[in-house]
């Protein structure tokens, strides 16, 4: 099996020849190619070549266009701080929807309108053309809570849940409308699966997650499914208290950050859910020796059971020792799904 076949087999409920290997790499990938991160996020060819090189060098089963949360925000005209060699950041003190009335005046951008969203769509097409037969190609969109936080300002949004619930619902609905268009463009460009990153959702707790975030995440996931795309859900941070809801979204892959226990996820999400993760990307993958990485990922697999995909809990940090990434790979290629239980 090649990487694409391996991942798609698992997602379709079939037997894979070994555990798939799908770490998130961004700055790590840029460093592999020896390019500045600003170039990586600004030109799909640079991102594509870095992803291809990294996937080849470490035998990943997929390539991805994940890069930063400011693609959609940039095309909407949000204020962004750019850095030479690290991800851009939204400027909260000049948030696009600092004035709530601006939401009603704003139209969703065209993902093929020549901006940063189009660069990502072009990246998907580039990766599909270069490696789409051997590697799964992953597109990426923001979830409603993450996008809402980017556009409103994360500190302000946290208070909006209490102060103005109606605005939060309208904001999230706007985000999902935009992300569905973005996902569609990436699927049409050749993405096999779409990553949905909803980092801010881990901050709000179960009450507001279930009331405000979950219904819009569900709409986004169902919409991607209707386009025949698979979904990888990734919520950075501690999601321990919202695992049950995350499981009910119906995503093909639930990708957990290191703070969320895989065993609890398995108990709450059921036997069929593909779980991915989740060793600590800093304290373990970056800082420990390879044998400790191997032991940690084996423990993750033991907790998660099968179906399971080998990965860190979040992005592989840029200065992670290559031998530690290889330790993850060794575990993946040495283990056949289901064989160890």
């Amino acid at each position: 099996m090649n990487g694409r076949e391996r991942i798609l087999s698992l997602l379709n409920g079939e037997q894979a020849d070994r555990l798939p290997f799908m770490p998130i790499t961004m700055m790590f990938a840029a460093d592999q190619l020896g390019v500045k991160y600003r170039d990586y996020i600004s030109d799909f060819r640079v991102l594509g070549e870095a992803q291809l090189l990294t996937a080849e060098r470490f035998d990943f089963d997929y390539v991805s266009v994940i890069s930063d949360p400011a693609r959609e925000a940039a095309d909407l005209g949000a204020a962004i701080e750019w850095f030479d060699d690290q991800p851009p950041a939204l400027q909260e003190d000049r948030a696009l929807f600092a004035d709530k009335a601006a939401l009603a005046r704003t139209r969703v951008p065209d993902p093929l309108g020549g901006g940063r969203m189009q660069d990502r769509v072009d990246g998907v097409a580039y990766l599909k053309q270069k490696a789409g037969k051997e590697k799964a190609v992953e597109g990426w969109v923001e979830g409603p809570c993450a996008m809402g936080a980017d556009l409103r300002g994360i500190n302000t949004l946290m208070l909006d849940f209490y102060d103005d619930p109606g605005f939060v619902r309208d904001l999230f609905a706007f985000a999902v409308e935009m992300e569905l268009g973005f996902a569609k463009a990436q699927i049409e460009a050749g993405a096999d699966l779409i990553g949905v990153g909803d980092a801010a959702a881990s901050l709000v707790g179960p009450r507001w997650y279930n009331e405000f975030v979950w219904p819009l995440e569900k709409k986004l996931v169902d919409g991607i499914h209707a386009m025949r795309g698979h979904v990888r859900l990734h919520i950075c941070g501690n999601t321990r208290k919202i695992l049950e809801g995350m499981g009910r979204l119906g995503c093909e892959i639930v990708d957990l950050d290191w703070m969320s226990p895989l065993q609890s996820a398995r108990e709450q999400m059921g036997a069929g859910q593909v779980l991915l993760g989740n060793i600590d990307p800093v304290a373990v993958l970056r800082n420990k020796p390879p044998d400790a990485v191997a032991a940690a990922i084996a423990d993750c697999h033991r907790q998660a059971g099968d179906p399971y995909i080998v990965s860190a809990g979040c992005e592989v940090c840029r200065d992670t020792p290559p031998e530690n990434v290889r330790a993850l790979h060794t575990y993946a290629v040495s283990n056949r799904p289901g064989a160890r239980r």
Binding site: Y162, L203, V204
Partner: peptide
Amino acid sequence: CEDYFVPELLLAAR
């Protein structure tokens, strides 16, 4: 102990 989350903490702080 994860009874409160970020919104509750920010509201209390306000």
